[in-house]
Design a protein around this nucleic acid. Sequence first.
DNA 1: CTGTCGTAGTACGTGAAACGATACTATACT
DNA 2: AGTATAGTATCGTTTCACGTACTACGACAG
Lengths: 106, 106
Amino acid sequence: MVRRKQDVAWADPALLILGSLAAGPKHGYAIVQDTEESAGVTLGPGTLYAALSRLEARGYVRALPGEDRRRPYEITASGSALLTERLKAMSSFASHGLARLKTAQP
Amino acid sequence: MVRRKQDVAWADPALLILGSLAAGPKHGYAIVQDTEESAGVTLGPGTLYAALSRLEARGYVRALPGEDRRRPYEITASGSALLTERLKAMSSFASHGLARLKTAQP
DNA sequence: CTGTCGTAGTACGTGAAACGATACTATACT
DNA sequence: AGTATAGTATCGTTTCACGTACTACGACAG
């Protein structure tokens, strides 16, 4: 088992989770499915729950009262603020980078 | 010191390096300065040179003959291809996420 | 001449976290 | 009952981000 950390990642798992929760509260399994289809990234359970509890400890998400055995999470205000900042930075970096790639071909 | 790994990063250092090299060959120190002004991220030497040698080992960058004390690096074709993929993914994730944030406010 | 500042890269230790594997429970179907 | 699926949790390994400290060299001030 040669865990190869996925060879130059483009986004932090925590950011994928926040992005998924931005659309509304979800429980863990739903987050996994959402990031798979919207970002093409599959989060393993180890990654998911570890990142979720870190986000909760830092106040970016909040656990909602679980109805049955699912535990939904909700993004908080500071989580939204953080996500907005990061997404803007990503967006501008991506467009600058793509512009560089187009022009700087020898 | 409590190495807090920077609290939800928005981009892998390796990606910042590739993005900087997309504008043309640079040596390490110049990459640091470039990412500082273009992305607002300061890469420490430990982060920078470790990431650079990983990128070189995987064939995404190539070391050019060093003139004096500096060691310039150049992005390779597969590095450009990788960067393009990742930037496109980042860009679409960022725009989807920002759209979600706008609409889904209770 | 010597201090120190900016440039450039090296070496290294520490801790955080990604990831896969594994295990477990509860419901649904057959 | 047996199997599949939904859902959550924990463990161990490995990798890597990051800070600190260090070497080295040119330029310029004092």
